[in-house]
Design a protein around this nucleic acid. Sequence first.
DNA 1: ATGCAATACCGTAAAAATACCTTTTTGCTT
DNA 2: AAGCAAAAAGGTATTTTTACGGTATTGCAT
Lengths: 213, 213
Amino acid sequence: MSDKKISIAVVDDHTLFRSGLASLLNEFDDISISFEAENGIDFQDKIKFHSHVQLVLMDINMPLMDGYETTKWIKNNYPHILVLALSMFDNEKEIIGMLKAGAGGYLVKESKPVDLHLAIVTMVEKGFYVNELVSGRLLTSLKNDKLTPHFTEKELAFLQFCSSELTYKEIADKMGVSPRTVDNYREALFAKLNIKSRTGLVVYAIKNGLISI
Amino acid sequence: MSDKKISIAVVDDHTLFRSGLASLLNEFDDISISFEAENGIDFQDKIKFHSHVQLVLMDINMPLMDGYETTKWIKNNYPHILVLALSMFDNEKEIIGMLKAGAGGYLVKESKPVDLHLAIVTMVEKGFYVNELVSGRLLTSLKNDKLTPHFTEKELAFLQFCSSELTYKEIADKMGVSPRTVDNYREALFAKLNIKSRTGLVVYAIKNGLISI
DNA sequence: ATGCAATACCGTAAAAATACCTTTTTGCTT
DNA sequence: AAGCAAAAAGGTATTTTTACGGTATTGCAT
């Protein structure tokens, strides 16, 4: 391990969590907090004056600029900076998304401080930190890649309308296509998702974050 | 203000948040953290040995025993202990629910440390802390009280089934009532919610946390 | 240019969902 | 025990949804 302290930035929109984390990490004598930011935009402003930062603890869901965007931006503009994702949830989509964006590790906020410390020093030494959570999800993600269906823009728009109280005829009007075409959208989705009712479609779409309600 | 430190417990299932918060608060010289707990059950175990605690910082969504239950339990068993709710969200249902359960204040996790400190000392002095967030929600809650519909157990069960792909006839079977009765459930819900389709019911139920998907 | 695949479109019929109005049963109050 | 209100059940009709058969159009690769 280097004899210099590891320089860290914390990006999270929840002020209490962010400050608490900073306070906690400052108690480790091999870590020092350089600065905090409350979202990606804020981070972009502040990193200019702290380019010596080695590692960023990155929340995912934030207003204005989220963890995915911010991580990609860091990897484009400061490729030497490591990103460790910190999330509320053990969510496969988030894990895979952050790793794709360039994060070198992923921890849930349920983790113990000592685990966070281990993750940080491991990232600085090896460039990445893969715990059981991440390795497990990587494997299932590989398996599921072929099974994950693809949706066209029209199908996604149709799904969004499905969650309203419009009839299919009205949806066809809104989408500017014939009612029969809307039938095709529905039947294509039924077939590939093995679903048999409009209700099922809507629940599936909500569950998988395909639409907003 | 008393010359003794304010003794505080932190209840939150996110270890990093909990520890961070404890670390942060320990930096205030009028506050000392007595113990941490990761949910209501854990709190019940530990409070026995720390009955001098004056105030509990209480998360809401936790496994095993959530913030509502834990707050009610505290008010029944240790009525002198103050509860300050700490939530991720500015959510009216949560705010009103926690205040009803016996919390004396409500802060979102976006708050600044200095606001948390102010809330804590205000609670110790006055027994409650009502910021603009809470006072605003209290008022709108009063207005909405008449408008908030009430659901029977049967209706809630029916809503849950509605989110499946069962037909109404099959739902009637599952619920052990006649299909006509299921029609009544549906029509009662349509009427009181001003909804016209099964899809609308399901989306409403999901939006308002009435069912789990 | 031609053929292939994806998309859009059409007709018909059956099943499910919705609307409205009525009657029976149940549980509670007095 | 009588009366009342709520819940449950019924009849019938219309609209919407779903299923399945097929045809026309479009875009793209060869």
